[in-house]
Write a protein that binds this DNA or RNA. Sequence first.
DNA 1: GCTGTGACTCCTT
DNA 2: AAAGGAGCCACAG
Length: 110
Amino acid sequence: MALTDPADRILAAVRAIPRGEVAGYGEVARRAGLPGRARWVARLLAVSDDPGLPWHRVLRSDGRIAFPAGSDAWEEQARRLRADGVEVVGGRVRIARAERSLDAEVWGPG
DNA sequence: GCTGTGACTCCTT
DNA sequence: AAAGGAGCCACAG
C-alpha cells in the first residue's frame, strides 16, 4: 500500500526529478496520475518534513518560483536551484518556456 | 456543513 | 507582458 497512496505517488514523482531539472506542480501531479491536483502537490511539499525531498525543483507552470519574491523561502529555493546547476534569473528558471500561446506561434514572427 | 485560504492553472482582456 | 476572473482541491475554523 506504499505507492497506492496518492500522496506517496506525488512525493515519489518529486523525488524522481533529476538534479539540474525542474518540473511544474501540475506536471508532477500528472506524473503521479492525479491531473488537476497541483494545489495538493504544493500543500504536500509544505507539510512534508523529508529533508531529502527536492521540493525546490518544483515550480509554477510559467517557470517561476511560487513563493513571494524576496521572501526567505523564495531566497532558499533560488539558492538550492543554483546549487543544482539551474540558472535562476529574477525568480524565473531559464529553461521553462511558456508555449501556451499558440497565436504567437502562428501569427507571430514565426 | 458552509466559508475562507493558498508553494496552482487556464482563459480572456 | 500583465492583470482580472473562474475553476480547482484539500484543509482549518
